[in-house]
Design a protein around this nucleic acid. Structure first.
Lengths: 264, 264
DNA sequence: TGTTTCATTTCATATAATGAAATATCATTT
DNA sequence: AAATGATATTTCATTATATGAAATGAAACA
């Protein structure tokens, strides 16, 4: 039917509720602000009336998504978002399946360890086992990573669907540091190398002075379900990591994979 | 005007939007489920129609609060909750102000370190610097703690508003372990002791075999703005902690307090 | 005491959410 | 290859309910 195309171009809103849309925008707006904001300001930012926003805030507050500063009466994002975020994170099977191996990996390598998963084409940090450095604060659970500029991402490009790697290589490749791979061709070559080796690195490609060494986790059907990595200063994880580090990371990933075998 | 009272008793809903309320209940429902659920099931659980829920889910999905399983078409909570949760956590001033001291404290004591704050009368873990044990997984940022059954909580009762400690002592005191303080009288005595010492412990009171040693962080006006603690096996943090541990925790708390002095 | 800055409530209006039922889509089974 | 069953999705008439302008209230400030 050609109507679909017409509709899509004419009215970009196929279904949904505008009331809810406004309310969600209010929540996101509040999270972005760094301090509580006045009702009038929210209403103006969303080009809506104070009364409307007010009623939404009341409902949002009742659910804990929004809070009101007891002193100033201004509104702010509520802690429910933090609580729900953590509850959601815990729900990923791989998080509990990998936990012990990740701790062991950190203790054996001395570096911070991260676990990532792709959810709706977004590369998300699900777990961080801290080392002794501060760099890892950039790798908190809930953080989104770039496919082309992270060791985790390269694992997902090398062992995930070909569509994804093609799409990423063809898209815009933002440079985070001077070392970030920005050419599609170079990226595809790097992906091939990663596939061959079975592990990936990203020296100076996310943060200068920091390197990551990642390996893939598969389920019983050989489908990629996660990636794990050690993260540390280039001083500890060289651009060409030492064989023992590689063995540790790849080995831990393989053991987690094995642990997933008997699962659905 | 007496009408207010009448209204309040007759209709408990003073303001707000029912549409939004339904949508938020849908989000919370999805977070609670451990797997994606079918539209019909959500509609039934919230006693609403499929069409209504569908449209809400579309909007929620557009904002990332909800995702749809590409294979089954079923709905699930979206990662936006995780991303927003982490963004929100970062916004608390005390988190960045305390970061370095907390790292130092962990390195000097060898134990995991936590930072808590009270937001809208809820005691929330805002930061966790991991040690080498697994117990700390129960103390992730976003976790809610009980005032009467945690070292952090006792700090907030001892150095916070008298109304709070009175209310908590008078309320129900849930027993998490056999060692949890369940009598209001005993709790008040404990609070007095904490206030006198300047630090609190909770041996076996949250999880058996685990102890916590907490101290208060104040702002320039001597108002309580946070609490920090070391968390570890009772083996490492005795019910009566050794003087050095106490000195470390109380000292770190004092330094963080001092760091807040020049701030608003 | 007057002034500003907020939140909150009221009320008439029509916008926009609603539910029942029809339809589409897809995977799996026969 | 056709049938089945699970699911999402769209349609449409109806009115419930979200809406905005303006009035009010409350509190902090000078």
């Amino acid at each position: 039917m050609t109507l679909d195309t017409d509709k899509a171009s004419a009215k970009a809103v196929p279904a949904g509720t505008s009331t809810l849309d406004l309310a969600l925008r209010a929540v996101e707006y509040l999270v972005l602000q760094s301090r509580p904001v006045a009702l009038a300001q929210i209403a103006e930012a969303l080009s809506s009336s104070k009364a409307t926003i007010y009623r939404h805030l009341v409902t949002l507050q009742r659910h804990g998504f929004v809070r009101q500063d007891p002193n100033t009466g201004r509104y702010d994002a509520g802690i429910k978002l933090m609580v729900l975020g953590e509850a959601l994170r815990q729900r990923f099977d791989i998080v509990s399946a990998a936990r012990e191996e990740l701790m062991t990996l950190r203790d054996r390598t001395g570096q911070a360890v991260t676990l990532c998963d792709v959810i709706d084409e977004e590369l998300i940090v699900l777990e961080l086992i801290q080392g002794r450095t501060m760099i890892e604060f950039a790798m908190r659970p809930g953080t989104r990573l770039a496919f082309h500029a992270s060791a985790h991402g390269k694992i997902w490009l090398a062992f995930g669907s070909p569509e994804r790697s093609r799409a990423v290589a063809a898209g815009e490749l933002k440079a985070w540091t001077p070392s970030t791979i920005v050419s599609g061709e170079a990226l595809l070559a790097e992906i091939a190398r990663v596939r061959e080796h079975g592990w990936a690195t990203a020296p100076d490609q996310v943060i200068t002075g920091v390197n990551t060494l990642a390996a893939p986790v598969f389920d019983h059907r050989k489908a990629l379900v996660g990636s794990i990595a050690i993260v540390g200063a280039t001083q500890f994880i060289a651009p060409e990591p030492n064989p023992e580090q590689i063995r540790e990371v790849v080995g831990a990933a393989a053991r987690i994979s094995r642990g997933l075998t008997w699962k659905d």
